[in-house]
Design a protein around this nucleic acid. Structure first.
Length: 663
DNA sequence: GCAAGGTC
């Protein structure tokens, strides 16, 4: 009798390859017949024998256990989601009023490029006596598990009847963890599946209904909208636009304010002794070999928005004439090395340091990943697992000529290596972003790829370094009961800053301040009253936009960049040369239109609420319908009222666009 | 012609 066949399905080809390698390394196994089957790579390995393969799942025996029996392992992968949801042909744009989309039936479809994959999985499952789902262990991976399960059951219903569909729990593809996952197979978490399906159904219904509503209305009423294409609405794209508009509106309504401040300068000798004009005139030769330094102090009140008050204080200071040292404190100050790199942070740093937009970054990072230069680029994880082998990775950089090699060598000597800090986030599905191969940057021909690789290498090496060490001194003076402060910083050890060039500096400010005695009386070399004006904020930068989206749960590590691209593609916003965004007339009009109806759809609140609801489903506290029915009812209500008050949307758009047939 | 979420 032929040995039992187990079908293993991963979320992406790289995981399937790693699994196949582990299966092929089990004692006595015979890898054979690895081939590209059109839609995916298939790895076959005979005589794979793992003790207790099905013996236990979360501590309890699974049915039909096959213990210590050799298996044929067939391993392959999908490429993300296999299925998508859409309305049937009866619900086309011209076939129904948009409001029906709140209740229209939704079909599961396999897009043209997924159909070969779907067929392949159906065929493979016919041979299988068990199915192991190796999709990423996050919420979305659970939903994809459900899609793969559905397809495989079509090919082989016995897998379900005999309860032979298992879920592997793993977060890295290290061999030890894969073997452990095989010993502790579980089942699909149906709550996670429901949570994803709830979000998906909500987004489709609400997004499609509002998109058709606004598109059709504006096409009917205004010039140029037929040619402009769809005027989309989405639960993520609209709050993204909202952040851009909100900043722009703050600039538009900004009213500058005048303020006044006082600045003081003094001179001190390097040994801390006081340089006073009177001293110098009497005993000029005493200080002749001393280097005196100018020190600038700022007013503790910073600024006042009232001229007479500031002037009165300033006069009092002038009249007092002499300042007294009230304190000089010194304390150690460190500049912490960065935490391990996750996607959102890479996007921010690439924008800030390299002026590379998030969308381009993700495309280039994907290329680097596919060429084996870096680890998987879509991750939320900011901590390394204890098993991560830093030593080998850093060692591989020692052989690279130039700054990487020099710094790697430095890390590996004199105990300079420090285990990386742990950041807050962990998606339990992927490790932080690291280099996967040590090369000289010159060998990467694409200049953008080269910059990104260099950032990832430097960030990784910085993570494994010591914090920078310094000493901060603070000098306080009082004159006419007004306090003035100077801060000085002396950098003692640069450590990680040495590799994080030229992006991170540690301001040395005024350097270390001289050790002047408390109680010393000093005549300021200058005491000035200055005026100024508050400035409007700048347009929102990509770094700020990404941070706001991340903080408010708008999109995910893998989609934040796409939403930003979407609002630009739909011509709601434009990116300028400094990676800052300004809204277009249409973007402003849409936000203003809904605001004038009283619906703040531009705020992130709705999305945040939906995310919280989905988490409640995932945790088993609510069912899919508990969440969907009230939320869809509420959005239907908003939708109906927006239809009734559509003239308010017209009015907002009319301010910027001409009406159809008006000339 | 609609969403957002995966991934190539």
């Amino acid at each position: 009798m032929a040995p039992p066949v187990v079908l293993n399905v991963a979320e992406k080809p790289s995981v399937a390859r790693a699994l196949a390698q582990v299966f092929g390394s089990s004692p006595g196994s015979r890898p054979r017949n690895n081939h590209q089957a059109g839609p995916a790579q298939i790895f076959e390995c005979e005589n794979v024998c793992f003790p207790s393969l099905y013996q236990q799942g979360h501590g309890r025996p699974l049915p039909n256990s096959v213990i210590d029996e050799p298996h044929t392992m067939i391993t392959t992968s999908v490429r993300g989601h296999l299925a998508s949801q859409d309305f049937g042909p009866a619900y086309g744009w011209s076939r129904c009023p948009p409001v029906t989309l709140f209740e229209a039936p939704i079909n599961t479809e396999y897009s043209e490029d997924m159909q070969p994959l779907e067929r392949m999985l159906r065929d493979l499952s016919r041979r299988a006596s068990a199915l192991i789902l190796w999709l990423d262990c996050d919420r979305e991976g659970e939903a994809i598990s459900d899609e793969v399960r559905t397809v495989c059951l079509k090919g082989n219903p016995r897998l379900g009847a005999q309860n032979r569909i298992y879920r592997a729990k793993f977060s890295t593809v290290l061999p030890g963890e894969i073997r452990k996952a095989l010993r502790t197979l579980g089942r699909v978490n149906e709550n996670f599946v429901q949570a994803v399906q709830a979000r998906s159904e909500h987004d489709l219904r609400v997004g499609a209904a509002f998109t058709r509503f606004q598109t059709l209305r504006l096409q009917k009423k205004f010039d140029g909208f037929q040619e402009r294409g769809v005027v989309s609405y989405g639960p993520c794209q609209f709050p993204t636009l909202g952040f851009v508009v909100e900043r722009w509106a703050r600039i538009e309504t900004f009213v500058p304010e005048n303020f006044w401040t006082i600045e003081m300068s003094i001179k001190l000798n390097a040994d801390g002794s006081v340089v006073n004009d009177s001293d110098q005139s009497q005993n000029g030769n005493v200080y002749i070999n001393q280097q005196s330094r100018a020190i600038h102090l700022s007013w503790k009140r910073v600024r006042l928005y009232d001229r007479p008050t500031t002037a009165a204080i300033y006069d009092a200071c002038l009249e007092a004439g002499v300042a007294v040292v009230t304190s000089l404190t010194g304390r150690p100050k460190n500049k912490w090395r960065p935490v391990p790199l996750a996607t959102v942070e890479l996007q921010k740093r690439a924008s800030k340091y390299l002026r590379i937009g998030s969308e381009e970054l993700m495309n280039k990072a994907e290329e680097l990943y596919n060429q084996g230069y870096i680890s998987y680029p879509r991750t939320e994880t900011e901590k390394f697992r204890p098993e991560f082998d830093h030593h080998t990775l850093i060692q591989s950089f020692q052989a690279v000529a130039g700054e990487f090699g020099d710094y790697a060598s430095r890390l590996l000597t004199n105990n300079n290596f420090q285990n990386p800090r742990a950041g807050q986030n962990d998606d339990n599905a992927h490790p932080p972003i690291t280099p996967a191969k040590a090369v000289n940057v010159e060998s990467i021909s694409d200049p953008i790829q080269r910059k990104i690789y260099s950032l990832i290498v430097k960030h990784y090496l910085a993570c494994c370094s010591r914090d920078a060490v310094g000493r901060e001194t603070e000098l306080c003076l009082k004159i006419a009961s007004e306090e003035f402060v100077a801060k000085g910083l002396m950098v003692l050890e640069r450590n990680w800053l040495d590799i994080y060039q030229p992006w991170e500096r540690w301001s040395t400010g005024q350097g270390e301040l001289p050790r002047v005695a408390v109680g010393s009386r000093i005549t300021p070399t200058s005491l000035l009253m200055k005026d100024g004006q508050t400035n409007p904020p700048q347009l929102i930068s990509e770094v700020e936009l990404i941070a706001l989206m991340d903080r408010n749960g708008i999109g995910t590590d893998a989609t934040i960049a796409q939403h930003i691209t979407t609002i630009c593609d739909r011509r709601y916003a434009e990116r300028d040369a400094n990676q800052r965004f300004h809204p277009t007339k249409l973007g402003i009009a849409l936000v203003e239109g809904y605001n004038s109806m009283g619906y703040r759809l531009n705020l992130p609140d709705l999305r945040r609420e939906m995310e919280a609801n989905c988490s409640a489903i995932a945790a088993g506290h609510k069912s899919k319908n508990d969440v969907l029915l009230p939320v869809l009812a509420k959005m239907l209500d908003v939708f109906n009222k927006a239809n009734e008050e559509v003239h308010k949307l017209d009015a907002a758009v009319e301010r910027h666009f001409s009406k159809l047939g008006s000339n």
